[in-house]
Structure formats: structure tokens, C-alpha cells
């Protein structure tokens, strides 16, 4: 009789780590075979670059700057996206009037708006911010409209038969009932906002000639165009990935906190 090996509680962890570890080791072995003057990144070089960048504080402040822009742009998108979404979701005529405009802008990628943003707002924070807000606006709006349109009519009627005035129903019934959908939109929006800020900073950095636009995207641009440091670029990529993961985890935690009735 064949008995399966007993599952330790570490088995999933080992399974998750094993393949990446093998790949990194293989990468390093391959890198050692390259000529000494190569620009190709290697694990050891990436780790060294990380400690160098982290030690100088540059990596941290660049990440913080990008994150700050994302949060501010995201905040704008929440105000306009959710606000407009509530209006469009609860009024047929508002929706019918705005839908064509929104649907024609939606397929225009944030990057396609960047040239105009740079020309109008320059190469600083306002341009990057507006791209983030633009990118995050659509998922928030569309999910809010969807959430509001799906609110159980009985709940609204129940509030009406308790003498709750219309505007108050919006805040006390429609908003909480649509919240799960809005939060889903917020999570998607935050994801695209983080993607957009890196691209915007790369492009803004290019335009300003690696100047003072700042942010992790601009840091990458400098490694790419000036110091040609591939290890540095890989460090930036990893940081971008980790931050995106943390943002997502933060949102999941927020959902639990905001909507305890769902868990």
C-alpha cells in the first residue's frame, strides 16, 4: 500500500518558494559565465544595487513620492468617480447624457492623454497626478454606477416608508448597498493608478531630461538613459511589484473593516 507523504504545514510555503529559488540560482550561475564588463543584471548585482539605493535613502524617498502622487490622484478619482457614479446610478437622465462622453473617453489609455497633460501642466507633479486621476476615474465610476443600479429597490422603498428624505436615502441606503461594488472598483482603480504613475514618471522624466520630476519611474528612467544600470532597473521593478502587492493587501483589509457584514 502506498501512503502519501504526510503534509507538513510548511509544504505550501516550500512549494511557493522552491521554483523562484531555483530560477534565481540558475540566473546567477548563468551570469557568472558572462564576460566581466557585461551590463546584464545578476542576482548578486541586484542585491548590491538594492542596498546601495536603500542605504542612500534615494529609493525610499522615490517610492514615497510616487506613492504620494498615486494617493492624491486616487483621492481626486474617488471624489469625482464615486460622486458622479452615484448621480448617474440614481438618475436616468444624467446617465443618458453622460454615458456617450464617458464611453468614448474610456478606451483612451492614460498614456495617450500624457502628451496633452505634459504640454498643459508641465513636467512636474500636476501632470503625473492628472494621469493617475484619469486612470483611476473609470473603474471607480463604472463600478459605482453598476453598484447603484443593482441596489435592491425594496431597501429604498423600506426607507421611504420610514419617512427618510430622498437625499438622506442616498447616503444611508444607496451608498452602503453599493459599497461592495465601489470597493471592487477602488481596488482595480488603485492597481491601474500605480501602473499609470510609473509610466507617467518614466515619460515625464524623459521629457524633463532626467530632471527633477522625481518618483520611482523617473529613477528608472535615469538608470535606463544615463547610468545604464540594469541592476538598478531590476531593483525598481521589484519595488514596484512589492508596493502593488501591499496596496492590494491593504485594500482587502480595508474591505473587511468597512464591510464587516460581509465576513
Amino acid at each position: 500500500m502506498i501512503r502519501p507523504a504526510p503534509e507538513s504545514r510548511w509544504t505550501p510555503v516550500i512549494n511557493a518558494v522552491l521554483l523562484p529559488a531555483v530560477l534565481v540560482i540558475a540566473w546567477q550561475i548563468w551570469a557568472v559565465t558572462l564576460p566581466a564588463d557585461t551590463r546584464a543584471p545578476a542576482p548578486v548585482g541586484v542585491v548590491a544595487a538594492f542596498f546601495h539605493l536603500a542605504g542612500s535613502g534615494g529609493l525610499f524617498s522615490a517610492t514615497l513620492q510616487s506613492l504620494g502622487r498615486v494617493l492624491l490622484g486616487f483621492a481626486f478619482a474617488v471624489v469625482f468617480g464615486v460622486g458622479l457614479g452615484l448621480l448617474m446610478g440614481s438618475s436616468r437622465s444624467v446617465k443618458d447624457n453622460l454615458d456617450p462622453i464617458i464611453e468614448s473617453f474610456r478606451p483612451i489609455a492614460p498614456m495617450a492623454v500624457l502628451p496633452i497633460a505634459i504640454l498643459l501642466l508641465g513636467t512636474g507633479t500636476p501632470a503625473a497626478l492628472s494621469i493617475v486621476a484619469y486612470a483611476a476615474f473609470f473603474p471607480l465610476l463604472i463600478n459605482t454606477v453598476h453598484g447603484v443600479s443593482r441596489v435592491d429597490r425594496k431597501l429604498v422603498q423600506a426607507a421611504m416608508t420610514m419617512g427618510v428624505p430622498r437625499p438622506r436615502i442616498l447616503a444611508t441606503v444607496i451608498l452602503p448597498a453599493a459599497l461592495p461594488s465601489i470597493m471592487l472598483g477602488a481596488r482595480v482603480a488603485m492597481g491601474v493608478a500605480w501602473t499609470a504613475i510609473i509610466a507617467a514618471e518614466l515619460a515625464v522624466g524623459a521629457k524633463s531630461g532626467g530632471g527633477t520630476s522625481g518618483g520611482i519611474g523617473q529613477m528608472m528612467f535615469v538608470f535606463y538613459a544615463y547610468s545604464i544600470d540594469l541592476n538598478g532597473i531590476v531593483v525598481c521593478m521589484i519595488v514596484i511589484g512589492v508596493v502593488a502587492l501591499l496596496i492590494d493587501r491593504f485594500f482587502r483589509a480595508t474591505e473587511r473593516w468597512l464591510m464587516p457584514w460581509r465576513y
Binding site: D152, K154, L155, Q157, A158, A159, M162, G163, V164, R168, T172, V173, P176, A177, L179, M259, W261
Partner: peptide, 25 residues
Amino acid sequence: FQDYALFPWLNVRDNIGFGLRHGTP
């Protein structure tokens, strides 16, 4: 209502107190 139309995001106490808090009563 037939299916009660309780507010799923409010606990028992807040559901019962909803009209008193937000409505005319």
C-alpha cells in the same frame, strides 16, 4: 415586506432604529 428588506450592513439594533434615526418618526 415579504422578504423583510432588512439592511444587510446594519446589525439588529441599527436596523430597528433606522427609521428613528434617519426618518420622520
